[in-house]
Amino acid sequence: MPAPVDPLACAAALPGNPVSPPVASPPAPGDSAWRERLAHLRLLATERSCRQTGRSAGARAGELPGRELAPGLRLHEVRVGESRARLAGLELAQGLRAPWSAEVVDREQLCLFDTETSGLAGGVGLKVFLLGVLRRDGDGWLLRQYLLTRLAGEAALVDAWAEECRGVPWLVSYNGKRFDLPALRTLETLHRRGAVAAGLGHWDLLYPVRRAFRGRWPDCRLTTAERMLAGRERAHDLPGGEAPRAWRTFLAHGDTGDLLRVMQHNRFDLEALLRVLRALLAMPETRFETGCGPRRDAEPGHRRWSPG
C-alpha cells in the first residue's frame, strides 16, 4: 500500500512555510495584520467611549475640599462638636461595654471607619479611593476623609491608614471584616507594607445586628439599621453603588460633582455607624444570645467553581 504523507511534514516543505514550525515564538507574518486589527479595535473603543475633552482629574482636584496630603491624596477634616453631636444623636458615654461580646472599650479608643471602592467584585483590582475615619476629638467627633485623586497617591493612603492604626485603636465598622479590611490589606500587600490592622480589636456591627434582627427586618443593611434603631431616613444620599462610577468619571474628566456626593455619603455612613453603635450598646445582652462572628461560608470573590 502507498505510505501516506505526514501533513505536517508536507505543509512544512511547501513554499511560504517555515521548515520547522516555530513553536516558541509566533509566526511573524501575523504581526502586521495583528497591529492593524488592534488599531481597528481601538477605533471602535474610542467611538464607543465618546470621550469628553474635560480637564484632567489633577487639574480640578483643587476644587475638592481639604488639602493635599501627598501627591494624589487629599485629606478633608470635619469636626462635629459636643453640642452638635448631642443634637444629632452622636454622643456616647465614656466607658463602653458591648452587650454582644462583653468587651469593654474606652470611648477615646474608638476608630470608626468606612471605605469607598471602585467596585464590589473583590480581588486585587479593587481600588480603595476614599477612606473615612471617625474618631473622638476633645468634646466631640472628628471626621477625617482621605481621598485618592490620582492613583499615584495610593502609597500615601496606605501610610495614612497605618497612621490611623497607631496607638492601638478599637475598630468599628459595618461589614469591615469581610470587605473594607481585606481591601486595605490588599493595598498594603501591593505596596509591600505590613498588616497594620491585624490584631486590633474590632466591632463589626453587621454581626450583632444580624444576630439580633435577622428575620425581623427586611435586610440588615446599614441604612436599614439606622432607620430601625435611630429612626433616621436619609434624603438626597447618593446610592453607594454609584460611587465607583463617580470616581471613574472624576479620574477621566475631572468632574467633581458626584465625587463630592460620595464624600457626603461616606460621612452619612460613618454617622449612621455611630448611631447604630450607640443603639446596640444600649441593648440587653439577651438580644445577642450566641457569639457573633463572620459567617465563614461566603468569602467575596470566591465563587463556587467546577471545571469541566
Partner: peptide
Amino acid sequence: YLADEGVLHRDGRLWHWIDDSY
C-alpha cells in the same frame, strides 16, 4: 486600547485597573 475602553487609567508610568468588574 483598554484605556480607551475605560477599564484602565494611566497615571504617570503606570496603567491601573479602575473598572468595577472582575
